[in-house]
Computed example of a mutant assay.
Amino acid sequence: MGYKLSKKNINDIIKDLSKEYVIYAPKTFEGQGTFSDTDRIRYGEINAIDEIVFDKKAEYSYKEVLLPISQTLFYFTEDSIKEADAPKKGAIIFLRSCDLHAVKRMDDIYLRNGQEDYYYKRVRENAKFILMGCENSFENCFCVSMETNKNDEYNAYLKVDGDNVYVDVKDEALESIFRNDETLDVKPDYVTENSVKVSIPDNLSLDVMKSEMWKEYSARCIACGRCNFVCPTCTCFTMQDIFYTDNGKAGERRRVWASCHVDGYTDMAGGHSFRLDKGQRMRFKVLHKVYDYKKKWGYHMCVGCGRCDDICPEYISFSNCVNKLKDGMKEVADNE
């Protein structure tokens, strides 16, 4: 059901929802940008509608709400283990269509991949998603090519137009909160074209691993892992044991984001390591995003948000790399 409300109405609703939920949305963090005196837009807790940044892309994705950068799993002593407490409140997350598609990928990995991840599930099952429309495409976005520019699997959709706020509510629990006498038909804003377009070749196979195209990234990539950390569908982590005492009898185990681009990711016992070459790491990531994931799930892992292109300090473009796959396949075929 669609409704027209005022910003004051929405702020009252946010205040009411805050009793049971922590509300996350893209917001401005002043002075926390890459360079001096620059700001950064990323996810944080909001208490009013005007805190939400609607007209710019969040530089980091929503995923740190469902999968914290560093998450304590349990505490231990010499003879006991105590599970870390679950969040006391649920989460309401404002996000765009591409990121809502990314939630589906996260669910694939953590809930439908052979077993359910207990720590992810207890956060995920208490999360609701409010869609933010996109009137215009942002720089480096290629969601239309990845077919993630539209999504109707939201709990609610919200659009601000001056002092008016238009909402479409699908969730019964939220319906009673947003219900208003002034009802109308509200449809989400979706982009239908991006300036950046990608084309994944129909004949793409693992033969492309033999292409010379990957050598470019051996020279350019610095293995910082930023592309992985801003990506809404990268889900890898490593484990850390934090000891409280010198004798190591008490502490906590945490899982912490990891990156297939960063040194040490493939280290094994005995000093062995796979993919020491940075081009090989780029190859692994690209083929995971647009080849093998689709073979299992029926759709690509990449959702075309373009954050990887936005954040790379070496100006490496993931979308350009994807578009080189066609020539890479031709090169390999010609060499055989």
Rank of each mutant, 00 (worst) to 15 (best):
N11W: 08
N11H: 10
D12A: 12
D12S: 15
S18W: 03
Y21G: 10
V22G: 04
P26K: 09
Q32L: 15
F35Y: 12
D37P: 01
T38A: 11
R42T: 12
Y43D: 06
Y43G: 06
G44C: 07
I52Y: 06
V53P: 03
V53C: 09
K56W: 00
K57A: 08
A58S: 15
A58R: 04
Y62K: 00
V65K: 00
L66Y: 06
P68H: 08
T77D: 09
D79V: 07
I81C: 10
E83D: 06
D85K: 14
A86N: 05
F94Y: 15
L95K: 04
R96C: 05
S97E: 12
S97G: 06
D99T: 01
V103A: 05
R105Y: 05
D108I: 00
D108P: 01
N113F: 11
N113D: 13
Y118N: 02
K121N: 13
A127W: 00
L131G: 03
M132Q: 10
G133K: 05
C134V: 04
N136G: 03
S137Y: 07
S137D: 12
Y154H: 02
Y157C: 06
L158M: 10
L158A: 01
D161K: 15
D161F: 09
G162P: 03
D163T: 09
V167Q: 00
D168I: 00
L174S: 11
S176E: 14
F178G: 01
N180T: 07
E182H: 13
T183H: 06
D185E: 15
V196W: 08
P201W: 09
D202I: 04
N203M: 05
S205P: 07
D207R: 13
M209V: 15
E212G: 10
C224S: 11
C224I: 08
C227G: 09
C227T: 08
N228M: 02
F229P: 01
T245W: 04
D246A: 09
G248S: 01
E252G: 03
E252K: 14
R253G: 00
R254A: 11
R255Y: 02
A258M: 02
C260R: 02
H261T: 01
G264V: 12
Y265D: 02
D267R: 14
H272Q: 12
K278D: 03
G279Q: 13
R283K: 15
R283V: 04
V286Q: 11
L287E: 03
K289Q: 14
K295D: 11
K295A: 12
G298M: 04
Y299A: 11
R307Q: 05
I311F: 07
I311A: 11
N320Y: 13
C321T: 15
V332A: 12
